[in-house]
Write a protein that binds this DNA or RNA. Structure first.
Lengths: 151, 151
DNA sequence: CCAGGATGGTTCAAATCTGAACAACAAGTA
DNA sequence: TACTTGTTGTTCAGATTTGAACCATCCTGG
C-alpha cells in the first residue's frame, strides 16, 4: 500500500463524470416522482420489481438485493407502501420466517400511471442523449462492475 | 402525453445497469470510507473539492453545486467537518453574506491519508474494469447528460 | 438614494437510510 | 432427538438528507 496508483486524466474524468451525473440524475428523478405521485425513487423501484416478478410478489431479501437498499430500509418502505395500499405482506408458504411482498391492483395501477412521466425523465436526461453504441458500451461496462460488486 | 415511449431492451438494459451499479458502488465506497476514516462519501468529496480549489477554499453554494447536495446538507456537513478540525469557516471578504469553507492543514493531511484506500476501491470496482475506450465513451456520455441536468 | 427582487446561508421539522441487536425459524450433523 | 450454525425479517438508535421558512445582504432600476 506504499505506492498509490492515482487516477490519470482519462480515468479521473470518467469517474468524476459518472459520480456527478448519477447524483444529479438521482435528484431529478426523486423530484419528478415526488411531484407526480408522492413517491420516492426506492418506492418506485419496488413497485417496478414487483410488477415484473412472477405473481407480482417477491421475498423481502431478494427485493432488497434488487433495489439495492438495506433490509431495514426495505422493511420501512414496504410498511409505507402497505399503508398506501400499493403493496401487501403475505407470509411465505414454504418458509415461515419469510415474508412475501405482493403488489396490489392499486399498486399496479399506480405504477402504470406514474411510469410514463418517470420514463420521460430517464429519456430526457440519459437514454435519449446517448447513441446506440454508447448505450451498449455502458451496459457491458456497468454490468461488469455490478457483477464484481455483488461478489 | 397520451402515447408513452417505453424503453426497448437495449435502453432498459443500459438504464438498469447504470442504476444498480451506481447504487452498489455508492454503498461500497461509503462502507470503505467509514471503516478507514469515519468519513461519509459527501464529506470526502468536500475535502477533495476544497483541496483542488485555489487557496483550498470555496463558497458554500459553489461547493454544494459541485458535490451535488442541498445547501442545508452542506451546512450540516461543514459544521461536522469543522468540529473535526478538517475545515474552517471564514466570512467572504467581498460579500458579507458569503461564507468560505477552508480546508485546514489537518484536513489536507486527512485527505492524503484516506485517498489511497478510496481510490483503490474506485479502481477495483470501476476504473480498472473498464477499457480505455469504455472510459472515454462513458466520460462523453456522462458529461452530455450532466450538462443537461445542470440546465 | 431607495424600493423590490434576487442571492447566500442557516435553521427547522419531517422523512429516510444504515448497521447492530434481536427473535423466530431452517437445515444439517452427530 | 438435540445442537449448532445460518437465514429472515423487524426493531431500534443515530446520522444524514431535503425543502421550506427565514433573515441578512446584495444589486438594479427608477
Amino acid at each position: 500500500m506504499t505506492d498509490t496508483r492515482w487516477l490519470d486524466d482519462t480515468e479521473m474524468a470518467a469517474w468524476r463524470a459518472f459520480l456527478s451525473t448519477s447524483h444529479l440524475l438521482e435528484r431529478r428523478i426523486e423530484e419528478q416522482l415526488k411531484a407526480a405521485a408522492g413517491l420516492t425513487h426506492p418506492q418506485y423501484e419496488i413497485l417496478v420489481r414487483l410488477a415484473d416478478a412472477p405473481d407480482r410478489q417477491m421475498r423481502m431479501t431478494e427485493l432488497a438485493r434488487g433495489v439495492v437498499v438495506s433490509k431495514s430500509a426495505l422493511t420501512y418502505q414496504i410498511t409505507r407502501l402497505e399503508k398506501a395500499g400499493l403493496v401487501e405482506r403475505t407470509t411465505c408458504p414454504s418458509d415461515d420466517r419469510g415474508v412475501l411482498a405482493v403488489l396490489t391492483e392499486a399498486g399496479l395501477r399506480c405504477l402504470e400511471r406514474v411510469a410514463p412521466g418517470h420514463l420521460a425523465v430517464v429519456r430526457a436526461y440519459l437514454v435519449d442523449r446517448l447513441t446506440r453504441d454508447e448505450l451498449e458500451v455502458m451496459t457491458t461496462a456497468m454490468r461488469r462492475t455490478e457483477r464484481a460488486l455483488r461478489e
